[in-house]
Structure formats: structure tokens, C-alpha cells
């Protein structure tokens, strides 16, 4: 089942005199329960794509449907409402509120949707234990490690069981051990909770944890790679090859 459909997405920055077209008629389809990575060189528009798909940024032209809802025509208030019920976010800089404890940070999305306290606590316990951060629940973000922060961020994204989770370079600030820990957890949660994850990354190892990799270049889709039945190692090799073709600077002779 398709959960997200983007058609002819255009995103233009700047004014009349100085236009910069970041996304050019990009089409994208995401199936329910998929773990998709978006890769591409810097400046290819991958973060912009994630922002418009997640309704944080507005498209200049085109349509985006999540579930059966068209989000490009929604008003600010509706969008906020939509985000808090249907979407979860994980970011590179953790994006935790440093005045709140780990537990308070994680429970934040539930307080908007007015989930009963008892149920919230159960959900929290389950998820925090799963991610191995239950012990640090009363600590503040500056008292825990980067990996723990990112797992807190992930827990916050999962707690309200959103239909799609967006992750922007979630491993960008982590060392390789914490990074692979986090990605293992993400793919576990993806399987267990049937949560759809869309992740932007430039780290090939990170991308190899997903089911599908979308490469974008100059504002359009360059190619797809499906993991299929491959092991992570062979999928990694595939990604590396594509990345190699994609990555180089083209000299037009």
C-alpha cells in the first residue's frame, strides 16, 4: 500500500531575479512499512526533499499525498495538527529540549494528543527499554552521550506511533559504534511496529540498513536500489557502486 506519493514536486528558492530551482519535477512513492534512504551529493536537494515531504517546508509546485490527505494545500494550523498526529522526526543535531529530562522529551508528542497518563507511561517504558535508555530517563540531555541523545530523539519520534518517521542524517554526529547501534534499533522498530521510515543520509553504511535507497541528483531522482533478499554487505557494495558513479564531478569534454 502506498503511504506517500509526491508528484512533480518543484521547490524554488530566491526571488524573481535570482531563482534557484532545488527540486525539479520530482516524483516519489513510498510504501507502507518501508525503510527508505535518500542519498545524493551535497546540494542535490535531499534535505529540501525531506523538509517538503514532512510539511516543514512548502513546495513551490506539485502535490504530496500522505495517506489520503493532500498536504500541500493545508493551512499552517492544519499542518501542525497533521504533523503532531502522523509524523515523527529524528534530526542530526538531536533536537532535544535541553531544559527537559529524557522522559519529558520523549513524552512531549503525547501531551499534544492528550493520551492518558497511564497509557503514556506504558508506551514510554516499552520503547525506552527497547532503545536502552530507560536507565537515563531522569537525566538531562547534556548529561548523556550522543548515542543516547539520538536514541532519545528516536524514541520521541516513535512514541505516538506516527505513520511516517522522517530522519535527517540521524547518524551524522555519532561515532560508528553508536551509529550502527541506532540503525539496528531503527530497523528493528521498523519491522516490529511496521513504522515507515524515510531517512536522508550521505553515509553508505547507514543507507545499507534500509530496504530501498533513492539516489537524487540536481533536484531529480537519479536511480533506485532495492535491497530485496540481499545481505546488508552485498547491498552496501551496490550502494557504493552507484554512489561512485553519482559522486564524481563531470567534466564535459
Amino acid at each position: 500500500m502506498t503511504i506517500l506519493t509526491g508528484k512533480k514536486i518543484h521547490k524554488i528558492y530566491g526571488n524573481k531575479f535570482n531563482k534557484q530551482e532545488v527540486l525539479k519535477a520530482l516524483d516519489i512513492n513510498i510504501q507502507k512499512g518501508e525503510f527508505v534512504s535518500i542519498m545524493g551529493p551535497s546540494g542535490s536537494g535531499k534535505t529540501t526533499l525531506l523538509n517538503v515531504l514532512s510539511s516543514i517546508d512548502k513546495v513551490s509546485n506539485g502535490s504530496i499525498q500522505i495517506g489520503d490527505k493532500e498536504i500541500t494545500t493545508m493551512k499552517e494550523k492544519q499542518l501542525a495538527e497533521f504533523r503532531k498526529r502522523n509524523l515523527g522526526f529524528i534530526f542530526q543535531e538531536y533536537n532535544l529540549l535541553d531544559t527537559l529530562t529524557v522522559k519529558e522529551n520523549i513524552l512531549l508528542p503525547l501531551s499534544i494528543t492528550k493520551v492518558p497518563k497511564k497509557e503514556a507511561n506504558q508506551k514510554f517504558k516499552l520503547l525506552a527499554e527497547e532503545l536502552g535508555i530507560y536507565e537515563v530517563k531522569d537525566k538531562y540531555p547534556n548529561q548523556i552521550s550522543g548515542g543516547q541523545k539520538q536514541r532519545t530523539s528516536a524514541a520521541r519520534a516513535f512514541i505516538h506511533e506516527p505513520s511516517i518517521i522522517f530522519a535527517d542524517e540521524p547518524t551524522g554526529a555519532l561515532d560508528s559504534k553508536s551509529a550502527s547501534d541506532l540503525l539496528m534499533k531503527l530497523s528493528e522498530l521498523n519491522q516490529k511496529l511496521k513504522a515507515t521510515i524515510i531517512m536522508v543520509t550521505h553515509d553508505m553504511a547507514a543507507a545499507s540498513f534500509s530496504n530501498r535507497v533513492i539516489f537524487i541528483k540536481d533536484g531529480g531522482i537519479y536511480s533506485h536500489l532495492n535491497k530485496g533478499e540481499q545481505t546488508r554487505q552485498t547491498f552496501y557494495q551496490d550502494i557504493m557502486k552507484t554512489q561512485g558513479v553519482l559522486g564524481g564531478v563531470h567534466h564535459e569534454h
Binding site: E76, E81, R83, K84, R85, F89, N95, L97, L108, I112
Partner: peptide
Amino acid sequence: SNYTILRKLGFTQ
């Protein structure tokens, strides 16, 4: 930055 996070999470202005 906190307001950014909160707005991304779906809190309105």
C-alpha cells in the same frame, strides 16, 4: 531552536 523543534513536532505558533 527549541521553538523550531516544537513547531516541527506539530505545535502551532
